[in-house]
Design a protein around this nucleic acid. Structure first.
Length: 169
DNA sequence: CGCTTTTGACCTGCGC
DNA sequence: GCGCAGGTCAAAAGCG
């Protein structure tokens, strides 16, 4: 592992970004590409929720035909930017890439990962800023229902802080 | 042999 | 109503 430089929403320590650490939505990520290093903790999401309950199907909604039902606003998204040369940051969990799409405002494609742990449908997406290719935006979606299987206590500590930040949400 | 990655197609939501 | 952008799936290939 290398030493990653993490940018936290606490602007008190951010000395390189006079930008206010505003709360940005995930969709605003494309707009904030014009800024420098900025972290955005998205708030409650409106739609796009695939889980509508506690114990039922997790996917297979858009399989054959569509399923329309109640959409619960239950999405935890933590987005933070890291300064690394690698796209994927090994946070101790097992991720399986399930998609890759090119963003319009970014020259670099966005990768979609999913936790391979059964029952743990946590998703994350990594995106590299076209302005600064050293900045990698990692967006976590969901909460892990299992423990970390690797000894990345360092990153675990980081993750705890992230969860603390998103606690009021 | 099993799992992960890759890539194209498909679907949905939103804006115009 | 159509087009665009984003997100997901699924089949095939590659690798350990």
């Amino acid at each position: 592992m290398e030493n990653y430089q993490i940018f936290f929403p606490t602007s008190s320590t951010s000395s390189a970004s006079p930008f206010s650490s505003k709360i940005t939505n995930s969709h605003d990520f494309t707009h904030m590409s014009g800024s420098k290093a900025e972290i955005g903790i998205p708030r409650s999401y409106d739609k796009g929720v695939m889980e509508s309950g506690t114990s039922e199907d997790s996917e297979s909604n858009m399989k054959s035909g569509k399923k329309k039902g109640d959409k619960k606003i239950r999405k935890h998204r933590y987005a933070f930017q890291t300064r690394s040369q690698v796209d994927v940051l090994d946070d101790g969990y097992r991720w399986r890439k399930y998609g890759q799409k090119a963003v319009k405002n970014n020259k670099f494609p966005r990768s979609y990962y999913r936790c391979t742990q059964p029952g743990c449908n946590v998703k994350k997406q990594v995106q590299r800023l076209s302005k600064d290719e050293q900045i990698v935006v990692t967006t976590y979606e969901g909460m892990h229902t299992h423990a970390v299987e690797k000894s990345t206590d360092n990153f675990e500590h980081l993750f705890r802080q992230i969860q603390t930040y998103s606690n009021p949400f």
